[in-house]
């Protein structure tokens, strides 16, 4: 861009998207966003590596226990690779992650990769089903609430909606889980309470994870929808006298998607954290129980790798959300920022 270009008013010309890395082009977005993702992964792996070094005291001693003999401590130190120079440890850590052999679990006596491979699907299932449930329920609910209460209509309904969703969004997932266990397993014995088996075994864990997020997201969708419904283009749409369904779904909903998706991305992240607790309540054989056990038993190789796995999941979600936003938003403001 030369000086003649910068002299023009900022919004006047749409810059022609010529050349491989023209501003606003997909390739530039891919390089920038992909680059940021890679940097974040590097930082994540480095932070997970440094965890072992930051543990107060001697990790090897911590790991085997205070009463163990010196030989055992030295053996463990060797197992953990702590007898190597720091940079060797660092590159070994990277090598392990990249080759898919990030060491051996101390307590389980099996390769960390195998532990994760056998546990990951259960957690992923739980998270994906929950996400679908949350999105399918929260968006119509929030939109409906906005449609019914826009412009200060039905104050009673507004109060009811905000209090009920407010309450459920305050209750954390694991307490929701305890409550559900009480209601559906102790009082009524309708649903199985532990383990992963038939379809019914999914009901309670998914409900525990999704109720709070649904309530919170529905609140946000309502607030956003109220903003959208106040726009001039909704008045234009109303001037065409279309059925209400079309007004809300065709004219309001697309304008809600950007902000809803941004927030849903954040929720999905905290949902991943929620799975750790909910898995523990329902004895769900996923990664959550594994990371808790690895921390309690000071199984550092397993814990470190799980930190990387969980961290990468969250970073991956952020990446996917950004890509979706870039596709959905016709103005592609994200692509250009």
């Amino acid at each position: 861009m030369t000086t003649t270009m910068s002299a023009l008013p900022a919004r006047a010309p749409r810059r022609p998207a010529t050349g491989w890395f023209a501003p606003g082009s997909w390739s530039l977005f891919a390089v920038r966003r992909g680059g940021r993702f890679l940097v974040a992964i590097v930082v994540l792996v480095t932070a997970a590596f440094l965890m072992l070094q930051l543990i107060p005291g001697d990790p090897a001693r911590e790991s085997v226990g205070a009463t163990a003999p010196v030989e055992a401590v030295n053996l463990r130190r060797h197992e953990l690779g702590l007898d190597q120079p720091l940079w060797v440890q660092y590159f070994r850590f990277w090598g392990g992650l990249l080759t898919g052999h990030p060491g051996t679990s101390i307590t389980l006596r099996m390769p960390v990769a195998d532990v994760i491979g056998s546990r990951f699907p259960a957690t992923a299932e739980l998270a994906v089903i929950t996400l679908v449930v949350v999105l399918v329920l929260a968006i119509p609910l929030g939109l409906l609430a906005a449609a019914l209460t826009r412009g200060g209509r039905r104050r009673g309904l507004e109060l009811g909606f905000t209090s009920v969703t407010g309450f459920f969004s305050v209750v954390p997932e694991f307490l929701m889980g305890v409550g559900l266990v009480y209601l559906f397993a102790v009082s009524t014995q309708l649903l199985p309470v532990a383990g992963r088996g038939g379809p019914t075994s999914y009901v309670l864990p998914v409900a525990a994870l999704s109720i709070g997020s649904t309530a919170a997201l529905a609140r946000i969708v309502r607030a956003e929808a109220l903003g959208v419904l106040g726009n001039d283009y909704i008045r234009t749409a109303r001037a065409k006298r279309m059925p209400a369904i079309r007004l809300y779904l065709r004219h309001a909903l697309p304008n809600l998607m950007t902000s809803t998706l941004t927030i849903a991305g954040l929720f999905l992240g905290s949902l991943i954290a929620g799975t750790v607790l909910v898995e523990s309540i329902f004895a769900w054989p996923g990664l959550g129980m594994t990371i808790v056990d690895s921390i309690r038993s000071k199984d550092y190789p397993l814990a470190q790798t799980l930190v990387v796995v969980y961290g990468a999941i969250v970073l991956g979600i952020n990446l996917v959300v950004d890509v979706l936003l870039a596709i959905l938003d016709p103005r592609s403001t994200i692509k250009e920022s």
Binding site: A40, I55, P56, A273, V276, R296, K298, V307, G311
Partner: peptide, 18 residues
């Protein structure tokens, strides 16, 4: 801040122990 608070807390428990 990219990581949810509870996940960060669990990560940090690796360092600070139980």
């Amino acid at each position: 801040i990219a990581f949810p608070g509870l996940l960060l807390t669990i990560f940090l428990s690796v360092i600070f122990g139980q």
